[in-house]
Design a protein around this nucleic acid. Structure first.
Lengths: 341, 341
DNA sequence: TTGAAAGCGCTAACAT
DNA sequence: ATGTTAGCGCTTTCAA
């Protein structure tokens, strides 16, 4: 006894396969009486349409793809991803669309993954972690795969896009630090070829008017510690450091304290992403939450529309919220961190 | 100009579709000369077989599913998951098998997800985060979906299983603490209906001979802080706490220090999972790394074998390594943490 | 409002 | 070693 097919349902309901199909899809009118009989038969036989048959007939995979190019540790750190995916799923589930996840190690594998998608595995793709001049954009354009870009992207493209303004929270944090008298404010960024890292770093440089205290990290704890060590070893160390994610901020915080630097009294610290640990550090870490699930939902909705043929749109999701906590709540103490020099 | 089909390739190579199919699958002998012509034609036309057609013909989805029941924050915390998935993928990629990810909010949705899989979306499933008496095991048995269980599971089942011995590292940590003179050692577990939480807690109770300092957390930072607060408020507070994950341990560490309890001098702390931050805390956090990628690879291999009809096997992956760091490196100081009482 | 029938692109008997 | 021919389970014209 294998799975029932649409033919079984048709027989059971005393109609043809076409009627069963239409009764369920609504693609053509079906009398109420017939529809009821069909639904009853579906129920009775516990029928679920075969995806592959449907895909073959419609040339739709009913699946969308997400490729994760895993710079080994950068992604594992990422509290963004699981929440984002959950948001995507919540929308996809409405239309029985599956999510195909690929984790790839290198560019070759990533390119193969996109090519496979364009060959019927998936109907569209969601692009994360965009780089400056990202090679995937022209590739997906060439492949003709409906795509949604998450994050800003300034090169020419005609894809839908879910944007956020990462500059605003950076400015807000810096304004707050200024108010407390900080003048030597440093920034530990993510890799500057990531569009979002760059947006944050640009906002920082803009607000400070100077890039001498900007250091490029790579989002890992190790880089957070190292850049912090370098900054604290300066003849004129900063009195505040803004990090581009919480992992680096927490590592920086720990490092500073291990060196006897008091936070926030001698050094104010702010992160980004509002990791689950942020509020539980001591002192609690000032950070920026950004509702990744909302961005996931928006991306999925845009992609669905694109697949159905809508014109690409850009949606600005602004859900960045700065949570000021103890790690930035002492007035600047310009001499404090200098004692190490 | 739509995508070429196998018929186009056959025509181009001057053979029939069957020959093309077999030249590529190796399912029946094909002369070298013919195979070469076929491959050349494939290359020339840039043909990629249609997954859906293939699935329909073979009733194989060439995909496996992973369902994530997202207890909202528990999963986002999890540095296990991304690495595990990367391991799974590295094996699936060898056979062009896709990974279907579902993130579900409740049991109903999860059940639907498995039913959909059993209806042709996926050829098999990987089960994570097993509960004591997990309802998914009988469901998947009933659905006849080849399944691999990751982690121990003691109920009856005939699925393949990737096991690890979570008791061993717990015993090792406790032995280490004993050596340093600790006698009041507490454990903050994960939810005890998770099989892996329970295994760790059982090992703890076994080693200590007593459950009076066992507290059940839920893997979140908040619970780590709260359980720590309770333990430190005891008339006879523990001198060491072993946590079932690093998130809780780090939150506990921060809490203890915010209360003026020196770590490790007055309180030794150990975590589990070896989160990326563990080594970068101050003091660096003792923790247990467990190579999630290796477990992912093993799970994918077992699942592939199961799908091909192999008998279920259990594989013991032992890659748990305890990293002793500064957070447990001071001799016990039995009076220290009592000063708060 | 419904039925009949032709595919979608592949695989796998069954022939030769 | 290769060709012929049915399907796999749907959707969707085209007719009635």
């Amino acid at each position: 006894m294998s799975r029932p097919t649409i033919a079984d349902v048709a027989r059971e309901a005393g109609v043809t396969k076409a009627t069963v199909s239409h009764a369920l899809s609504g693609n053509r009118p079906v009398s109420e009486a017939t529809r009821a009989r069909v639904l009853a038969a579906v129920e009775r036989l516990n029928w679920v349409p075969s995806q592959s048959a449907r895909s073959l007939a419609t040339s739709r995979a009913n699946a969308v793809g997400v490729v994760l190019a895993r710079d080994p540790q950068v992604i594992a750190n990422d509290s963004f991803f699981p929440a984002f995916i959950a948001g995507v799923e919540s929308v996809l589930a409405e239309t029985d669309t599956a999510l195909l996840l690929q984790v790839v190690a290198d560019r070759d594998a990533e390119e193969r993954a996109y090519r496979a998608m364009s060959h019927g595995r998936a109907d569209g793709a969601i692009l994360l972690d965009l780089r400056v001049e990202d090679w995937r954009v022209p590739l997906l354009t060439e492949l003709g795969v409906p795509t949604v870009i998450v994050g800003a992207y300034d090169q020419e493209h005609d894809f839908s896009c879910v944007r956020t303004d990462d500059g605003a929270p950076v400015r807000e944090i810096i304004a707050h630090l200024h108010e407390q008298g900080h003048t030597r404010i440093a920034h530990v960024s993510g890799p500057l070829d990531y569009v979002h890292s760059k947006a944050r770093a640009d906002a920082y440089v803009d607000a400070i008017g100077d890039a001498s205290l900007l250091r490029e990290g790579d989002f890992t704890a190790g880089s957070g510690r190292d850049r912090t060590a370098e900054l604290l070893a300066l003849p004129q160390p900063p009195t505040a450091i803004v990090y581009s994610n919480d992992t680096m901020a927490i590592a920086g915080l720990s490092y500073a304290r291990s060196q006897g630097v008091a936070v926030p009294r001698e050094l104010a610290i702010a992160g980004f992403d509002d990791d689950h640990l942020a509020a539980h550090m001591s002192p609690a870490l000032t950070s920026v939450s950004s509702d990744p699930a909302a961005r996931g939902r928006a991306a999925a909705r845009l992609l669905r529309a694109d697949i159905l043929g809508a014109r690409p749109r850009t949606e600005l999701i602004d859900c960045n919220v700065v949570h000021f906590r103890a790690s930035t709540s002492a007035p600047a103490n310009p001499d404090a961190s200098r004692r190490k020099s």
